[in-house]
Each structure stands twice: as C-alpha cells, then as structure tokens.
Design a protein around this nucleic acid. Structure first.
Ligand SMILES: [Mn+2]
Ligand SMILES: [Mn+2]
Ligand SMILES: [Zn+2]
Ligand SMILES: [Zn+2]
Lengths: 140, 140
DNA sequence: GGGGCGATGCAATGGTATTGCATTGTTTCA
DNA sequence: TGAAACAATGCAATACCATTGCATCGCCCC
C-alpha cells in the first residue's frame, strides 16, 4: 500500500478513500489543532462539506476529538492511541494562544479530578487555557 | 429609586437605562446562565441587538462573564462580587447539562492549579463539565 | 455488466454573532 | 431655556460557521 495512513483508518473502522487519506495526512503533519476552514485551506481546493463530513466521521469513529476553544470555530486534533468512540482518553488540557490563534493539545498535562456533588453525572470534561503560547512568548 | 439594580450598574460604571435594568433583573432572577436568545425571550419583545450590546457592555465592565459551553451560543452569568474588568475572579467550574441544556456556575468548585511549562502565559482558564445535572438526575 | 450502497459535491438553509447607520434620548453648557 | 454633544437604541444588512437535501459518482459484490 502506498499510503501508510490506510491502516490507521482501517483500524478505526473507517473506509479509506482518497479524501480521507488526505485529511488524515494533513492532521498528522500539523502540530496544532485544525478547524474545518484550516483543513480546507491546507488541502487546496477540496469541497468544504466533504471535509466537514470527513471530520465528523473521524470524530464518530474515535480517530479525532473536537476542541471548542472559544475561537468561534471547532478545532480537530488526532486522538491518542487508546481512544475509542465510546471512551475517549483525551483528558488533557488544551491551550489557545490569543496571539497566533493556534490551539494545541497538551497531552502531558492531565486534567485533575474535579470534586463534584454526587448528584452530577459527568460525561465529559473540557479544560481550555487561554494566553500566549511558548512560541509567541519567545518571539516577543 | 424604585430600582435597586441601579446601584449595581453605577458601581460598575454602567449608565443605568431601562433596558439595562431589565436585562440585569432577568439575569438576577435566573439560576442558570442565559444565552442572548434566552434573555430576549424572557424579556418579551426586546430588540435582540440591543440586548446583545447590553450584554457586551456588562461583560466589558466586569458585571457578567461569558461561558462557552459548546452549545453553540455563548451563555452569560453574573460575576462574583470581587470581579473587575481586568481581573475576573470567576475561576469556578461550569456545568452544562446535556439533557435540559442548562449551564450553571458552580462557584463552590474552584479550578485547581494547572502545572504548565513556564513558557506559557495563561490569561484565562475555562473548565466546562458536561453531563446530567442534579435536577435531571433526580427526575430520571 | 448491473445492482446496491456508501462517498462526494453542489445548492440551499439554519443559527449565531456582528456591523452600519439613522433615530431617539439624555446630559452639558452657553 | 435651547442647542450642541454624546450615548443608547432599533432596524437593516452582513459575516461566518455549521448542517441538511438531493442528485451524482465510484466502488464492491454478485
Ligand atoms: Mn486534544
Ligand atoms: Mn460562572
Ligand atoms: Zn501563539
Ligand atoms: Zn439538567
């Protein structure tokens, strides 16, 4: 197989297509999380709706996770290896840089346990930090 | 004065107007955070844009804080007493119920310190939990 | 080769946030 | 008191982002 990404898709029960391989490749090449518009632009002239449905498929299958960073557009980033659609393991912090507007996963920074009244049933936790990222700080 | 809310606005350097008093009253009466559409609906037939600008003014002056809960619309809730536009004290957790779609401030649950590499300059922290709230849990 | 089914692409729609601009209301000061 | 100055309001228009409908395309299996 020419595309090493094929195995990744198949492992997640996603039928490999040309478009999906391209989107996956783009996601793997970038260190920051990407919005739909980002992916569209990086791909050249791909159809936005197809990219949208590709990202939705990836999310449903546990290949990527969504990040709501407050920028107005949802960002997407590859999941960590152990993720399944049912049990996402991406309990890490996300950082949104107000200067370069890039959002990064910080897999090394785990989300601490939050002591909640037991009447609450927590399904998902999202911890987004906003500020100036390491790169922008060093430049300034 | 007939409106006890007037003092609250003046204390935050906000010129009291009829619309602003009404919006503040609505925010005080509700226990959950409100979206722009929520406020508009609760007010009857107020102009949406005016409400929008009222909430923006309130936010800029440190009277309310914005909550991005991933529902698609930003929610607004009253700040804690010590808040200023520069230094928001609302370092508490927010809970979004996927069942009733209500977002609540949990002032009692503080956000723990997040150990970040020193190269990052954190300006703001947002911790949103999603799940089923206490009320919806007890009903089910 | 043809049927079946998922993927694709264009068009259209829905929802939220924001801006422009004319009007209205209020304060300030001569 | 009356006009200028300024702020707030309301309607219209616009900008995005996300989502859905539907016809077509492409691939796999028979
Ligand atoms: Mn992540
Ligand atoms: Mn809050
Ligand atoms: Zn940056
Ligand atoms: Zn609920």
């Amino acid at each position: 197989m020419a595309h090493p990404q094929e195995d990744t898709l198949i492992a997640k029960q996603i039928t490999p297509t040309a478009m999906r391989l391209l989107v996956l490749e783009v996601l793997q090449q970038q260190s920051a999380a990407l919005s739909l518009a980002d992916v569209e632009q990086l791909l050249g002239h791909a159809d936005r709706i197809t990219v949208h449905r590709t990202l939705k498929t990836f999310t449903d299958k546990g290949l990527v996770h969504r990040i709501e960073d407050g920028s107005g557009a949802v960002k997407f980033a590859l999941c960590e290896p152990g993720c399944t659609p049912e049990h996402h393991q991406d309990l890490h912090v996300h950082f949104f840089c107000t200067q370069c507007r890039e959002t990064s996963c910080l897999p090394a920074v785990a989300i601490p346990a939050i002591p909640l009244p037991s009447a609450f049933q927590v399904q998902e936790t999202s911890l987004v930090l906003k500020g100036v990222c390491a790169r922008c700080t060093s430049i300034a």
